[in-house]
């Protein structure tokens, strides 16, 4: 029952596709916003997995740095989008 990089890539691919599905499916901004953390979370998981399984001694945590940047980017996107959704929706 060995877990390799393929398993992590598969979960990341599912998350990325689920995020694209959510973002494309609903016309409202608030509903589509839920796809952004899934999209970027899948990408981040692939980065960390690639880092863990292929990293060299020169820069063993480079992929983790990218993954952290992607996670913060997801939070920024959702924060900005939620403000826009509140401005766009009539009270």
């Amino acid at each position: 029952m060995t877990v390799g990089v393929v398993h992590f890539l598969f979960v990341g691919a599912f998350l990325f596709a689920a995020g694209a599905f959510v973002a494309a499916r609903r016309p409202s901004l608030g509903a589509a916003l839920a796809g952004v953390p899934l999209l970027l979370g899948g990408a981040g998981l692939d980065l960390v997995a690639a880092d863990r399984f292929t990293a060299s001694f020169r820069d063993p945590v480079g992929g983790q740095g990218f993954a952290i940047a992607v996670a913060v980017m997801a939070l920024a996107f959702v924060g900005l989008g939620s403000v826009l959704a509140r401005l766009e929706t009539p009270r």
Partner: peptide
């Protein structure tokens, strides 16, 4: 999954970031 890949700090960041995303989406 990040913690399983020995990426503890990234695990903490993704937990906080997606938790905050969930709170923002709860508001919508």
């Amino acid at each position: 999954l990040y913690a399983d890949l020995d990426a503890g700090y990234a695990a903490l960041v993704i937990l906080v970031a997606l938790g905050a995303c969930a709170v923002l989406l709860l508001g919508l």
